[in-house]
């Protein structure tokens, strides 16, 4: 997908496994749209879309976001060396601030 950066708020967070750069469109206090980018590794490689889908309309609450991403990690058997569900949640909260 092409990102028109102007429409999104950007959040950066450096995890052990790499830089997470999140593009966030807020709707009130919730996530309207989110795109995960960065130089981390994640297997399977298409896991980021599943994570983004699971966060649609979720309130911008770090613990809630972390739980949802953690659940996607478990369900899909995601392996992301040095990058945790909490790191992704941190990047989202950095974009929300």
């Amino acid at each position: 997908m092409k990102i028109s950066i102007g429409e999104y708020r950007q959040g950066l967070y450096k995890s052990v496994g790499g830089l997470i750069r999140v593009f966030l469109r807020k709707g009130g206090g919730s996530i309207e749209d989110i795109i995960f980018t960065g130089d981390f590794f994640i297997f399977p490689e298409d896991s980021l879309d599943l994570m983004a889908q699971s966060l649609k309309d979720v309130a911008l609450d770090k613990e809630r976001i972390q739980d949802i991403i953690g659940e996607v990690f478990r369900r899909e058997g995601i392996d992301s060396p040095g990058t945790t569900a909490e790191d992704f949640a941190e990047a989202i909260m950095a974009a929300a601030r």
Binding site: I3, I5, Q10, G18, R21, F23, I35, F36, T37, G38, D39, F40, F41, I42, E45, L48
Partner: peptide, 27 residues
Amino acid sequence: HQCAQAELNLDYCKQNNIKVVRRSTGG
């Protein structure tokens, strides 16, 4: 997984004939 316009100076690449390539691997 990287965003081209965020990570690269695309104008500089164009002006200096630097090819922009994407891998199928992360990092």
